[in-house]
Every structure is written in C-alpha cells, then in structure tokens.
C-alpha cells in the first residue's frame, strides 16, 4: 500500500523533473554566426529572434514549431534564438521551455553588445523583436514584426525561395 503511494507520488513528480528542450548558450555573437555558417548552402535557415518576455514573440512561436514539423528533413531548418536574460535563465527561460513543447533548435544569445551584432544579422534590422531572418547560402531576407498566421510565415519562406527560382521543398514524410 505504501509503495502505491510512493509510486503515484513519484509519477506526479516526473513531469517536473523532466528537462525541457535542451539549448546552447552563446555569450558571443560569433558563435551564432558560426552555427549559421555550418548550414548547408542548399538549406534555408529560418532564424527567429524572440524572448520569453516578448508577448508577440510567444504568440507566433507555435508557427515556427509547425514549420519545423512540416518541413524539417526537407531543406528547411528552424533556429530559435532567445534574447532572454542569462541572469534569469533558471527563473524564466528554463521553466518556459519545460512548460512549452518547443521542437526546433534553441539558442540563448547573451551577447549584450547589440550595436555590434544587429547589423551582422541583417542591415535593415532596427533591433525590435520579434524578427525573422532567412538565410540560404549568401542570400538573406528579413521580416520585422509578428507573423499573425502560419501561412504568413510559410509564404515568407516560399517568396524568398521563389526569388531564387527555387520551389518550396516537399513536405516532410511526403
């Protein structure tokens, strides 16, 4: 009888003990630049800058998971770069990742010298988040603001590829 209590207590605790999505912390933007450069020339990298405290970012986050689910293994990669405060990682960032099932790759970028790295992401970026940058080889495109619907994000990627004369890759599994 006692064992049953213990087991049920333990099973209640399991969700709290499970880690959230793993992530890397980059203190220097050049680490992120390297990560971006490691992507194949034929892959479209969708880089979204967000933070747990940014409500429009949180609202559009599921669209990036959908894009990941629909197209990964299919020449589209999603990279979620959080600008959360490193000093509040344990209170804010990790609990958020535990609570939300986010599947794309996550990086926490804590490089504070934004004037140095914002133009290296995209020349047109004013610095407000959310922002989404597409990278494919030496081509880049930027969308500043929030994607209201998944189709807006999908169209943004499709138009980027279209400008290069490329079709949208096949949907995962098809």
């Amino acid at each position: 009888m006692r064992n049953i209590y213990l087991i049920s207590l333990f099973s209640l605790l399991i969700p709290c003990l499970l880690p959230g999505q793993p992530f890397k912390v980059f203190d220097n933007f050049s680490e992120l630049e390297e990560r971006i450069q490691q992507t194949k020339n034929t892959t479209t990298l969708v880089v979204n800058f967000w933070a747990t405290w940014c409500s429009p970012c949180i609202k559009e986050l599921p669209h990036f998971s959908t894009l990941h689910d629909k197209y990964t293994n299919s020449d589209i990669e999603v990279l979620l770069v959080s600008l959360d405060m490193k000093s509040r990682m344990d209170e804010a960032f990790i609990p958020f990742l535990k609570k939300h099932k986010i599947k794309p790759e996550i990086i926490l970028l804590s490089d504070q010298d934004a004037d140095n790295w914002i133009p290296r992401v995209h020349e047109d970026w004013g610095g407000a988040i959310p922002v989404t940058v597409l990278v494919r080889g030496d081509q880049r495109d930027i969308f500043q603001g929030e994607f209201e619907d998944f189709s807006d994000l999908e169209n943004f990627v499709a138009n980027f590829l279209k400008k290069m004369g490329k079709p949208m890759p096949p949907i995962k599994g098809s």
Binding site: C54, P56, A114, I118, P119, A128, I129, E146
Partner: peptide, 12 residues
Amino acid sequence: DPDFTRAIGCTI
C-alpha cells in the same frame, strides 16, 4: 561619435 547605434527592444 558614434552618432548612431542599434539596440534590442520591444516593438512599438
């Protein structure tokens, strides 16, 4: 100097 810099912030 500098007379222009960029920073992270919230959208208006």
